[in-house]
Design a protein around this nucleic acid. Sequence first.
DNA 1: AATAGGATGGCCT
DNA 2: GGCCATCCTATTT
Length: 243
Amino acid sequence: MSESDDQCTSEYFNSSVVRYRKRLDAQFYETPCEEMAMSLLGKILVRRLDDNTILRGRIVETESYLGHDDAASQSFKGKITPRNEPMFMKPGTAYVYFTYGMYHCFNISSKGDGAAVLLRAIEPLDNLDTMTSLRKQYRKGPKSQMKIKDLCNGPAKLCISFAIDIKSCNKQDLTSWDGMWVEEDENSKLIDTIVCSPRIGIKCEKKWQDKFLRYYIRDNPCVSKIEKIKMNELKYSQIKNLK
DNA sequence: AATAGGATGGCCT
DNA sequence: GGCCATCCTATTT
């Protein structure tokens, strides 16, 4: 495999057959925010560290931030600041921001006026030892045992596990950068049900606080939080326009 | 199992 | 100066 091929695809093994996963391209990201958030479920996030270690995990939980009309969005009413500028950049641009004085959150810009999708949880797949090490070195005090499902089950946790921060990742183009990208995966077509719920941790006008703009794969153990009451459930095969 | 409070600093008004 | 798309630990039930 040539170096340029390596930037666009990766190989994996299944029943002794080498298959190739395709990097999601500009056409994939050229999609309205809510559809993109659902389409990203099941896809594979890939991160290449400076030492060439490749981290992989399956995206299992996302949230839509719709931009101009969305009271919970940092780009509400079209507000552009130095921080949220990537929300207005080309679909497929990484938007990483710093929050609560110590954490990062990772979004991908979508089609739409200042719209982006927040990645909230990932099922770790490759190089879990590196992810565990990154998480442990971030903590202070005694390092308690880390379960696999706890490595990336939250927006800030997945940033730590995947070494995603502003300096290294913000404003990068995921369709072309060799430090991080998202891959197609045939298993994403096998998702049975997507659960929709209100978004986590937002405080705004109730109308927008209550909207079902969070999406996760039902029954996946790596989702950040499961609500006690029954939420909207959508059959994956019946959702229109998924890529 | 559920809840409360502290950590910690950039951003925006 | 207040807010914040969070996480972790300790405490209570």
